[in-house]
C-alpha cells in the first residue's frame, strides 16, 4: 500500500500532503501565539503602569539575536534552493550554517536569562517579567524543536537524498517553513517585548 501524493502534488489541489500538513500546523501555532499576544495586550491595558522593555532587557543582545535568526532563515531557504538545483554540497553548508545561527541564538538567549537571574529577576516578580519569560521560553522551545529536525536532516536524514531526492527536498522545504515561522514569531516578539 502506498499513500498517494506523498511526493507529487495532487493535481486539483496542487499540493503534496506534507505541504498542506505543515501549513495547518502553522495555522494552529498562529492561534497559540495569538492567544499569548492577546493575553499580553489584555494584561498590559489593565496594568496601572508598564515598564519599557529596554529599561529592563538588553536591546543590543536582542538585536543581535534578531540578526542571527534572520540570517538562519536566509540560509535555510538557500539550503532548500540548493537541493532544488541539485547541489547537495551547498545544501549541507547552508543547513549547517542555519544550525550554527540557531545555536548562536540559544547561547545569546541563555546569557540574557542568566543576566536576569543574577539580578534576581524572576517570572514571579511582575506581570512584565512573567509574560517575558513565558513568551520567550515558549519561543526557545520552538527553536530547539526546529534545530532537532534540522540536525536530523543535516545528519542521518540526509541519506534519503540518494534514494528519494524529491521527497527529501520536500522534507527540507517543510522543515524550512516551520523554521521561518519561528523566525516570524521572533520578529514580532522583539519589538513587543524589548522596544515598547
Amino acid at each position: 500500500m502506498d499513500i498517494p501524493y506523498t511526493v507529487d502534488a495532487r493535481p486539483d489541489t496542487g499540493m503534496y500532503n506534507a505541504k498542506l500538513g505543515i501549513w495547518l500546523f502553522l495555522a494552529s501555532e498562529v492561534m497559540l501565539f495569538g492567544a499569548l499576544f492577546s493575553s499580553y495586550i489584555l494584561l498590559r491595558v489593565a496594568a496601572p503602569e508598564w515598564p519599557r522593555g529596554a529599561s529592563i532587557l538588553s536591546v543590543p543582545l536582542a538585536t543581535l539575536n534578531t540578526m542571527l535568526l534572520i540570517s538562519s532563515s536566509v540560509t535555510m531557504v538557500m539550503s532548500w534552493a540548493s537541493l532544488k538545483m541539485k547541489k547537495f554540497g551547498a545544501y549541507r553548508v547552508y543547513l549547517g550554517l542555519t544550525l550554527l545561527f540557531g545555536l548562536g541564538f540559544l547561547i545569546v538567549k541563555s546569557f540574557e536569562y542568566g543576566a536576569k537571574f543574577s539580578h534576581h529577576l524572576y517570572p514571579g516578580d511582575s506581570t512584565f517579567m512573567a509574560i517575558y519569560f513565558t513568551l520567550t521560553g515558549l519561543h526557545v522551545l520552538h527553536v530547539l524543536g526546529g534545530m532537532i529536525v534540522n540536525a536530523y536532516l543535516w545528519g542521518p536524514g540526509a541519506k534519503m537524498w540518494k534514494t528519494a531526492p524529491e521527497q527529501f527536498t520536500n522534507r527540507v522545504e517543510v522543515a524550512g517553513l516551520y523554521w521561518h515561522f519561528v523566525d516570524l514569531v521572533w520578529i514580532f516578539l522583539f519589538p513587543v517585548l524589548y522596544l515598547l
Binding site: 501555532e29 492561534m31 501565539f33 499569548l36 506581570t127 519569560f133 513565558t134
Partner: peptide, 25 residues
Amino acid sequence: LLLAFPPLEAAGVLQLMDRLAGTSF
C-alpha cells in the same frame, strides 16, 4: 480542533507558570 484548541494550550501554559513559576497571570 485545529484553531480553537491552541488558545487553551496557551492558557494551560500560563496556569502552569502561575502554579510552578510563581507568576500572576
